[in-house]
Each structure stands twice: as structure tokens, then as C-alpha cells.
Design a protein around this nucleic acid. Structure first.
Lengths: 201, 201
DNA sequence: TTCAGCCGATGACATTTGTCATATCGGGGG
DNA sequence: CCCCCGATATGACAAATGTCATCGGCTGAA
């Protein structure tokens, strides 16, 4: 019997997953969490064999939860489930030692099989998402350029970004200009979007 | 027996819903769709009693599908399911004659009950989302201002927006300026974000 | 009919951004 | 030790953006 921990912020979806997996022989859902930190706490307590983590959760996301689980409950194999296939997610998951990675586009019938496969110590990576990740380039931005871009998300004017980072306005513009150039974007807002899509932000 | 049509773009989630509802006595899932247009086609063909539509779907979203179903299959009662509780969605749904509206945060066990209730001709509105909607202010932007803002999302420069909408650049800037002023934003990008948050985009 | 409000446009102007050259300072690699 | 690179800054200039006044056409409500 595989003891499973399920983390997914949408209660309705989580309940549906429980119904889906509950019918599977050999799988038992022993815990449910709606946030990443809850999942970590429950995993430490329940010692499940496998944890299925959604990425998109409030307070602590599934990737951070996976990273913590690696130290808190190293015996627990992890399957990450994600709605939007941002490249970069997969990379982070791999670095955290995650063994399963599937998109929500994946056929539902395959999930139980994937869980069993991961439980046996094998890996499963959604081929669709793996293909995206292979095309993923290294981030060409320096750390400070990334900071600046991050602060620029949300449409703040240069003056506020400069204040937020404790830099001069000129410096901020230099960084943003460099980022825009490197990403071949029209302006910083497009650059922000691009960086987000590539999983660099 | 309630004949149910299920529309949800994420295959994994859809399959889970089928599992969840499949265990319910008196409910039978007769069709599944991954896009709004598919749902409309299937509803016309299968004549289900109730359709459960996710809002967030590619090509045609759940709200538009609901609007079309009102004419294509008027006997079919509709339950809308939504992940993010953008205000404005509820309003549109009500105008389309939708009888059920639940967030994905809703307890999963309640879904079957809601479907039965809607099938009987009663209504069910998620109290959480209803509260948000009551606090909803009217959108102060004119239709064209909204179009322009929409085209500005993603960081396109004015020149491209103008081309996309077939307007002069001056006009585009006027609209954007008006939108920025009305929303008390620093610039159009902040205005886009604000409008999105309010469910106006 | 008159008036208000939206649509679309133009021109002028101030401000914000984006770009570039250039400078200093520190750290790391050859 | 020297050189390069990243972080930080300044100044200058061009381009994009935001704001405002103003115009004419159209439509719906009073």
C-alpha cells in the first residue's frame, strides 16, 4: 500500500484527486494540504511514501515545499503537478530531487501509474514539458539585473524602483536597458514578461 | 439520473472530476470537453441536463460557452466553476442565466449537492464570491479604453497597439492616458494590472 | 432639438524611458 | 600583478510616453 500525501490549494480539485486516487488499488491518501507549508508539516508527521504537490499554492509553493521535503522527509518521493508549463519550474524541481513531474494537461488515467512508478524509485517526466525545458537557455542576466527586473514587474516607475533597491535612477535605467537588450524585448515590461515565461524571475 | 456535461481544460483535473462525480448516485457524466466551443457542440448533440463549465479554457472560455448555451441548449442548466475569483465573472455569469457559481476553493463534497440543486431549478452562488461581487465597483472605462488597455497588456509599444486596433497613435495615447487617469495608476502597465485585478480586463 | 458622451484625430509640450559613453571600485583568474 | 567583469554612478541625447486642449462626427436621452 502506497501512503500518499496530496497538496493542492483548490479544495474542489483536491477532493476530486482524492476521489480519482481513492479508487486505485494499492494507493491510500493519508493526508491533504492546501498550502506548501502545511504539506511539509504533514509530511514530517505522517511520513508518506509519496507526496503529490501542486506548484501553484499560496504562502509556500510546491517547489519550495519539495526543496524542504528533501531534508525534512528524504524518504518521501515527490511528484510535482503544474498547471502552467513554465520552463524553469522543471529545472528547479529536478534540483530539488523531485522524481515525477506532470502537467495538468496529462491524461488523468496515467496519474496512478506515475505514482506507482515514482514509488518504485523510477522517474517520470511529462514529455511535453521536458521538451520545453530542453529548449531552455541559461539566464543571461546578472543578479542585479534580475533584481531590477523583478522590482519593475507591476509597472512601477524608475523612481520607485530606485528607491526600493537603494540605487540611483541612472543605475536602474542602465540595468533595465541591459536586460531589455539581452532579452531582445521592446521595453522592460515585455522583458519582465519574457523573463517570467522563461522561469528566470 | 442527471445527465452531466463536464468542461475543463486540464485533462488531469477533468478526469479527477469524473472520478469524483462518478461515485455519486443519480449523476452520470455523459460528455467531456476541454474547450468552450467543444462544450457547446457537445451540449447541442447530447442535450445534457446540467453542464459544469470551468471558466479558464483556451479558444472559448466557460463564460462565453454559457452565453451560447443559453440559445443553443436552453434546457441545460449551467454551473460555472472558477479558479480565480475575479469579480465581474459572476456578473457576466448571472447575465448569461447561469444557475450555479462556485470557486475551486469550495469543499469538494458539496459539488454533487450543488449539481442536484441546480438541476431542480434552484440556484447556488458561492457565498465567498458573492460577497466579493457585491463590493464590486462599476468599471469606469469606456469599451474602447478597455480594448486599448487589453492590447497594451504584454508590454507592446504604442505603435503596435495602434496598428493592432487600426487607430492613430495619438488616439491610442489618449485612451491610455484616460485609462491611467481614471484608474489612478502610475502608467499603463500599472493600469493593466489594476484592471485585471478588478476583473475588468 | 439640444446636449452629453463616446469615438477618432491632431498638435504641442513635459516627463519618462531607453541608450550610450564613460568613470571608479573590488574581486577573481591567469 | 594585471585585466576583465560586475556593481554603481553621471551626463547627454533620442525616442517613447503621458497629458492637455481642441476639433468634428455620431448617437441616445432628456
Amino acid at each position: 500500500m502506497i501512503r500518499l500525501l496530496l497538496a493542492e490549494d483548490h479544495h474542489l480539485v483536491r477532493g476530486a484527486f482524492v476521489a480519482l486516487l481513492g479508487t486505485e488499488p494499492g494507493i491510500e491518501v493519508v493526508g491533504e494540504a492546501g498550502r506548501g507549508d502545511e504539506a511539509v508539516r504533514l509530511a514530517a508527521e505522517l511520513r508518506p511514501d509519496v507526496a503529490v504537490l501542486d506548484i501553484d499554492m499560496p504562502v509556500m509553493d510546491g517547489l519550495e515545499a519539495a526543496e524542504r521535503l528533501a531534508t525534512v522527509a528524504p524518504a518521501c518521493r515527490i511528484v510535482i503537478v503544474t498547471g502552467h508549463g513554465r520552463p524553469g519550474y522543471l529545472r528547479r524541481a529536478m534540483e530539488a530531487g523531485v522524481r515525477g513531474f506532470v502537467g495538468k494537461e496529462h491524461p488523468a488515467t496515467a496519474l496512478a501509474k506515475i505514482i506507482r512508478q515514482v514509488h518504485e524509485g523510477r522517474r517520470y517526466i511529462d514529455p511535453e514539458l521536458a521538451a520545453d525545458a530542453l529548449a531552455l537557455r541559461e539566464c543571461p542576466l546578472t543578479p542585479r539585473e534580475l533584481d531590477t527586473l523583478r522590482a519593475a514587474a507591476g509597472g512601477a516607475p524608475v523612481s520607485r524602483i530606485a528607491r526600493a533597491l537603494g540605487l540611483s535612477e541612472g543605475t536602474v535605467r542602465n540595468y533595465l536597458s541591459a536586460a531589455v537588450t539581452k532579452l531582445a524585448a521592446d521595453n522592460r515590461h515585455a522583458a519582465v514578461r519574457h523573463a517570467k515565461d522563461m522561469g528566470w524571475l
